[in-house]
Simulated assay, not measured.
Amino acid sequence: MNKYARGIIAGLVATAVLSMMMFAKGKMGVMPELDIIAMLAGKMGGAAMMGWAAHFMIGAILYGVGFVVLYNLLPGKGAVAKGALFGVLGWLMMMLLVMPMMGMGMFAMSMGMMAAGMTLVLHIIFGAVLGFVYAKLA
Results as ranks from 00 to 15, higher is better:
48 A>D: 11
39 M>G: 12
81 A>V: 14
79 A>F: 02
117 G>H: 06
94 M>P: 01
27 K>C: 04
33 E>W: 00
74 L>V: 05
80 V>N: 01
91 W>T: 05
86 F>W: 01
91 W>E: 09
14 A>L: 06
31 M>S: 11
126 F>N: 11
125 I>E: 10
133 V>W: 01
104 M>P: 04
74 L>E: 04
42 G>L: 01
47 A>T: 15
101 M>R: 04
52 W>Q: 07
46 G>A: 14
103 G>A: 05
52 W>I: 10
8 I>C: 03
5 A>R: 02
111 M>R: 02
92 L>T: 11
14 A>S: 14
132 F>V: 00
56 F>G: 09
102 M>V: 11
92 L>K: 05
79 A>E: 03
34 L>T: 08
128 A>P: 05
54 A>P: 01
87 G>C: 14
58 I>G: 12
65 V>N: 02
121 V>A: 15
124 I>Y: 03
124 I>M: 14
15 T>D: 03
112 G>M: 11
22 M>A: 12
121 V>L: 15
56 F>C: 10
92 L>F: 10
113 M>P: 06
49 M>P: 01
92 L>E: 06
75 P>Y: 05
101 M>Y: 13
18 L>F: 14
94 M>H: 08
20 M>Y: 05
50 M>Q: 10
122 L>F: 15
60 A>Q: 05
6 R>H: 04
98 V>H: 10
87 G>D: 09
88 V>Y: 01
73 L>M: 03
8 I>M: 10
47 A>V: 12
20 M>W: 06
9 I>D: 00
27 K>Y: 10
131 G>P: 03
54 A>G: 14
80 V>Y: 01
28 M>L: 14
136 K>M: 04
97 L>D: 12
137 L>D: 04
83 G>R: 09
70 L>H: 00
124 I>R: 06
6 R>N: 08
79 A>R: 02
131 G>H: 07
24 A>P: 03
38 A>S: 13
23 F>T: 14
10 A>P: 00
3 K>H: 00
84 A>T: 09
30 V>K: 03
57 M>F: 14
58 I>C: 05
120 L>N: 13
109 M>W: 12
99 M>Q: 14
22 M>Q: 15
71 Y>C: 00
66 G>K: 03
115 A>P: 06
84 A>D: 08
137 L>I: 06
37 I>K: 01
45 G>L: 10
44 M>H: 09
72 N>K: 11
14 A>F: 08
92 L>Q: 05
123 H>M: 07
95 M>V: 13
43 K>S: 12
97 L>C: 15
110 S>H: 07
25 K>A: 03
102 M>A: 15
21 M>D: 11
71 Y>M: 02
99 M>E: 08
43 K>Y: 07
76 G>I: 08
85 L>R: 02
118 M>I: 13
70 L>W: 00
130 L>Y: 10
24 A>S: 12
38 A>H: 09
108 A>R: 12
